[in-house]
Every structure is written in C-alpha cells, then in structure tokens.
Computed example of a mutant assay.
Amino acid sequence: MGNVTGGQSRWTFLTNHARVLLEIARNPEVRVREIAATIGITERSAQGIVTDLREAGYLSPTRVGRRNHYSINAERSFRYHTEADMPVRVLIEMFTHRDHAGTPG
C-alpha cells in the first residue's frame, strides 16, 4: 500500500524531477550532491534525474572548471498531455517567486 507513515500515505504533488528542476532554477551552479541533500534523495538518483532532464531538453549543462552550470529551457512544455500546452516556466516562476516574495526589490 505505497509509502505509509503513522497511518498516512506519504505522497506529494511534485515529483523529484520537478524538485530537481526547481533547485537548479534557484541556483544554476548547484552541485548534484547539494540537490540530493536538499530534496532528500540519493546523489545517484539526483544525477539520474539531471540526466533525464538534460536528455529531454530541459537542461543544458556548461562545464566551468570542475563544475557544471546549468541553463534551463523554461519554454519547454510539460511532458504529460494534459499540461503539454504549458511551459515549465510557469512552475519555475511559481516556486521561485515564493522564494523572493519577502525580499525588498
């Protein structure tokens, strides 16, 4: 019966793919190990998700020294047919706007 803790199912609205994309949107220089620690997955899982996002055209890595810097193709549409008319920019803006809502600008 899925992942159950204390009698409650432990599901969420956002997938780990969405969470990885959002962490990269927040910091294009973030390391895979930092992504993994922040969202609570293994480094191997985080690397696999970064690879998925790159292969699907959502991310473009650029090597700078020993690190990757990521560019996001925010105009790329969601993959599922019911959201395919929406760019991932909408998700990114929704969550990164929340991060900056309290900062004076």
Rank of each mutant, 00 (worst) to 15 (best):
residue 2 G to Q: 15
residue 2 G to P: 11
residue 4 V to L: 02
residue 5 T to Q: 12
residue 6 G to T: 07
residue 8 Q to R: 08
residue 9 S to L: 15
residue 11 W to F: 11
residue 12 T to H: 15
residue 13 F to W: 14
residue 14 L to G: 03
residue 16 N to I: 00
residue 16 N to S: 04
residue 17 H to M: 15
residue 19 R to G: 07
residue 19 R to M: 12
residue 21 L to N: 00
residue 21 L to W: 06
residue 21 L to M: 09
residue 22 L to P: 00
residue 22 L to V: 01
residue 23 E to R: 12
residue 23 E to C: 15
residue 23 E to Y: 07
residue 23 E to L: 08
residue 25 A to W: 02
residue 26 R to P: 11
residue 29 E to Y: 14
residue 30 V to D: 03
residue 31 R to S: 12
residue 31 R to N: 09
residue 32 V to E: 10
residue 32 V to N: 05
residue 32 V to P: 09
residue 34 E to A: 11
residue 35 I to P: 02
residue 35 I to S: 02
residue 36 A to W: 03
residue 36 A to T: 02
residue 37 A to R: 13
residue 38 T to V: 08
residue 39 I to V: 00
residue 40 G to N: 00
residue 41 I to L: 00
residue 41 I to Y: 01
residue 42 T to S: 03
residue 42 T to I: 02
residue 42 T to H: 01
residue 43 E to T: 12
residue 43 E to H: 08
residue 44 R to E: 06
residue 44 R to L: 03
residue 44 R to C: 01
residue 45 S to A: 14
residue 45 S to R: 10
residue 45 S to I: 13
residue 46 A to R: 00
residue 46 A to H: 01
residue 46 A to Y: 03
residue 47 Q to T: 07
residue 47 Q to R: 10
residue 47 Q to W: 11
residue 49 I to W: 04
residue 49 I to D: 02
residue 51 T to V: 13
residue 52 D to Y: 09
residue 53 L to V: 01
residue 55 E to S: 04
residue 55 E to L: 01
residue 57 G to Q: 06
residue 59 L to F: 04
residue 60 S to N: 13
residue 60 S to P: 11
residue 61 P to N: 09
residue 62 T to P: 07
residue 62 T to G: 07
residue 63 R to Q: 15
residue 63 R to C: 10
residue 64 V to M: 09
residue 64 V to P: 05
residue 65 G to T: 00
residue 65 G to H: 01
residue 65 G to L: 04
residue 65 G to C: 06
residue 66 R to V: 08
residue 66 R to K: 06
residue 67 R to N: 13
residue 68 N to Y: 10
residue 69 H to D: 13
residue 69 H to E: 12
residue 70 Y to P: 01
residue 70 Y to R: 01
residue 71 S to G: 14
residue 71 S to C: 11
residue 73 N to A: 02
residue 73 N to F: 02
residue 73 N to Q: 05
residue 76 R to A: 06
residue 76 R to H: 05
residue 76 R to C: 05
residue 76 R to I: 06
residue 77 S to T: 06
residue 79 R to F: 12
residue 80 Y to V: 15
residue 81 H to W: 11
residue 83 E to M: 15
residue 83 E to F: 14
residue 85 D to T: 08
residue 87 P to C: 04
residue 87 P to S: 02
residue 88 V to M: 00
residue 89 R to H: 07
residue 90 V to N: 08
residue 91 L to Q: 01
residue 93 E to L: 07
residue 94 M to P: 07
residue 95 F to M: 04
residue 96 T to A: 06
residue 96 T to K: 07
residue 97 H to A: 13
residue 98 R to I: 10
residue 98 R to S: 13
residue 101 A to S: 13
residue 101 A to H: 15
residue 101 A to V: 11
residue 103 T to D: 10
residue 103 T to L: 13
residue 103 T to I: 15
residue 104 P to V: 13
residue 105 G to A: 10
